[in-house]
């Protein structure tokens, strides 16, 4: 009896319990992985847009005897819209530069300018949508219009949330200053905002320009 317990005790001593995780956890500075994580989110968002683009590509020619892109799209208006988003991208860049120089007020100024350009983009897009719906080109009219409103509307929704986020950050920086956490958030929003511009390149090329060409 005693010999067996001694033997098992010896066995337990020599046999280390298996460890399936890193036992000596080195410390991560707070937020060190946020940028990579946010990038992964953007990539998954990219897949959402890819599916919507594919849907539009498949259904975009099914007009159901309704209006075609050529009759609906107003390219000068789209060009104006595109320039608003492009300008908001460069002004956000200026905000990031001021953030690196720790000029809080200049940073806030460029952030407000960026938000206004974003709002102008949304306003023009909503005007365009209202105009189309007024003409009877509603999302229910044809498969082309359903997929068009879904794709462009999803992008517009992203811009809306980007503006809400921007207002939140303006308040946060105004209240707490350019602390490390706020800098991290500003860089995340920077990625989000530039990513939306990248998606818009796809939209104006694939939807508007190619739609008018068709």
């Amino acid at each position: 009896m005693t010999t067996t317990t001694a033997a098992s005790a010896a066995l337990a001593e020599t046999k280390e319990a298996p460890v399936f995780y890193v036992a000596d956890e080195h410390d991560h500075p707070e937020g060190s992985s946020t940028m990579l994580g946010f990038w992964l989110y953007l990539m998954s968002d990219c897949l959402v847009f890819a599916v919507l683009f594919a849907t539009y590509g498949v259904l975009g020619a099914n007009y159901a005897a309704g209006p075609s892109p050529k009759e609906l799209f107003d390219l000068p208006l789209v060009a104006l819209n595109t320039s608003m988003l492009l300008l908001s991208s460069i002004t956000y860049g200026f905000a990031v530069l001021e953030m690196q120089k720790k000029n809080q007020n200049a940073m806030l100024f460029w952030l407000v300018v960026t938000g206004l350009f974003g709002a102008a983009f949304l306003g023009i897009e909503l005007y365009e949508f209202a105009h189309m719906i007024h003409e009877g080109a509603t999302p229910q009219r044809s498969a082309f219009l359903s997929s068009f409103f879904t794709l462009v509307g999803t992008h517009g929704l992203h811009v809306t949330f980007g503006i809400i986020w921007m207002i939140t950050l303006i308040v946060q920086v105004w209240k707490f200053g350019l602390i490390e956490a706020n800098k991290r958030r500003l860089l995340c929003l920077s990625m989000f905002w530039h990513f939306l511009d990248v998606v818009w390149i796809g939209v104006f090329t694939f939807v508007y320009l190619m739609g008018v060409l068709r």
């Binding site: 511009d197 390149i201 090329t205 694939f206 190619m210």
Partner: peptide
């Protein structure tokens, strides 16, 4: 326009992102 769009996406990736 597809080629120009693709180039612009790369430009955004490098200089903005």
């Amino acid at each position: 326009i597809l080629v120009l769009g693709a180039i612009q996406i790369v430009v955004h990736m490098i200089y903005f992102l």
